[in-house]
Amino acid sequence: MTTGASEPLLALTDVNTFYGQAQVHFDLSINVGRGHIVCLLGGNASGKSTTMKIILGLMKPRSGEVSFDGASLIGLTTPQIVRRGIASVPEARRLFADMSVRENILMGAFVRNDREAVAQDLDKMLTLFPKLGQRLSQRAGSLSGGEQQMVAMARALMSRPRLIVMDEPTMGLSPLYVDRVLELIRTINQEGVSVFMVEQNASLALEIAHEAYVLQTGRIVLSGSARTLKDDPRVRDAYLGGSEAA
């Protein structure tokens, strides 16, 4: 799938974003190649989560371009963007706590109308996430953090997306689940889904990513293949928020 990827699947070009007077992004440019796992690293307040909001249409940039599969996403609503083929695993999972696990997973297929294929995909999710099988009728809010992360990932996959964006998928998980989640991201990617993930935990993210960008107070300060960035001493400085920071 990576061959012949002349044009990236998702491209942010010279994006400038503001919260009122405060500028969050300065000429942000990020490319996510087809079939790739791309990781955005950065510390607190670097503008990572805002990047997610821009991609999903939850916030509008003041200037710049966001395009998916060659078509601009600017001006589209979040539901329209989801229909284009982008699914999300939001920060802190954001499950529908009072709905059952089954209902949560099926909510992921909200944009689809092919009932039979949806039912098949639900079965597929249960083979991918076997633990969820016995939890299907339980309230999603009653699951542990790791199990909730599984539900959130299954939910995102149910829309048959071409790109999944994940906001800190390993945050707050036990070490056991962290490995599990990373393994699953790799599996998802091998099935042809591109992944854009935001992480604070650089060493973990660089294990599975193809490319990575380092964001510092709204500017990309480093980018390149994950393999080269892994050994770069500046990466550590950057994702901790700069060498002068505590």
Partner: peptide, 15 residues
């Protein structure tokens, strides 16, 4: 129901 539990997450499901 989804929107009443988490509006933003519901939007991200295409609601």
């Amino acid at each position: 129901r989804a929107a009443s539990q988490d509006r933003d997450a519901a939007m991200q499901m295409g609601v």
